[in-house]
Amino acid sequence: MTSRDVGVVFSGGAFFEGPRWRDGAWWVSDFYTHRVSRITPDGRETVLAEVGQQPSGLGWLPDGSLVVVSMKDHRILRLADGTLSSYADLSEHCGGLLNDMVIDEAGRIYIGDFGFDIMAGAEPRTATLKRVDSDGTVTVVADGLHFPNGSVITPDGSTLIVGETLGNRYTAFDLSADGSLTNRRVWAEFGAVPTGTTTEEVIGQLVIAPDGCALDAEGHIWAADAVGNRAVRVAPGGAVVDEIRAPDGLGVFACMLGGDDGRTLLMCAAPDFYEHLRAGTREAVLLAADVDVPHAGRP
Rank of each mutant, 00 (worst) to 15 (best):
M1T: 10
T2I: 11
S3K: 12
V8I: 14
R20A: 01
R20Y: 03
D23E: 15
A25P: 09
W27F: 15
F31N: 10
Y32A: 02
T33V: 04
H34L: 04
R38K: 14
I39T: 06
T40N: 05
G43T: 05
E45Q: 14
E45W: 06
L48E: 12
A49C: 05
E50R: 14
V51F: 06
Q54M: 13
G57N: 08
G59T: 10
D63Q: 05
S65W: 01
L66Y: 10
V69M: 04
D73F: 02
D73G: 03
H74M: 11
R75L: 08
L79P: 00
A80W: 03
A80P: 06
L84E: 00
L84Q: 03
S85P: 05
D89I: 04
C94R: 00
L97E: 13
D104P: 08
A106Q: 15
G107R: 07
I109D: 07
F114R: 12
G115V: 09
D117C: 08
D117Q: 06
I118M: 13
A120V: 07
A120M: 11
G121A: 09
E123M: 11
R125N: 12
R125E: 14
T126R: 15
K130Y: 06
R131D: 04
V132E: 09
S134E: 13
D135W: 02
G136H: 08
G136I: 03
T139G: 01
D143T: 13
G144W: 09
L145N: 01
L145D: 01
N149T: 10
G150H: 06
S151D: 06
S151Q: 14
I153K: 08
I153F: 08
T154A: 05
T159I: 09
L160D: 10
I161E: 05
G163W: 06
E164I: 09
L166Y: 14
L166M: 15
G167L: 01
N168L: 01
N168G: 02
A177C: 03
A177S: 15
D178Q: 04
G179S: 02
R184E: 15
V186I: 15
A192Q: 09
V193T: 14
T195V: 12
T195I: 07
G196M: 02
G204I: 04
Q205Y: 01
V207A: 15
A209N: 05
C213S: 15
L215N: 02
G219H: 04
A224D: 02
A226T: 06
A235C: 04
A239G: 00
V240Y: 00
I244S: 05
I244W: 05
I244A: 03
I244Q: 00
A246D: 01
D248N: 12
G251A: 03
V252C: 14
V252L: 09
F253Q: 05
A254Q: 05
G259W: 01
D260R: 06
R263C: 14
T264S: 14
C268P: 04
D272Q: 11
Y274C: 09
E275W: 10
R282E: 01
R282S: 12
E283C: 07
A284D: 06
P299L: 13
P299T: 11
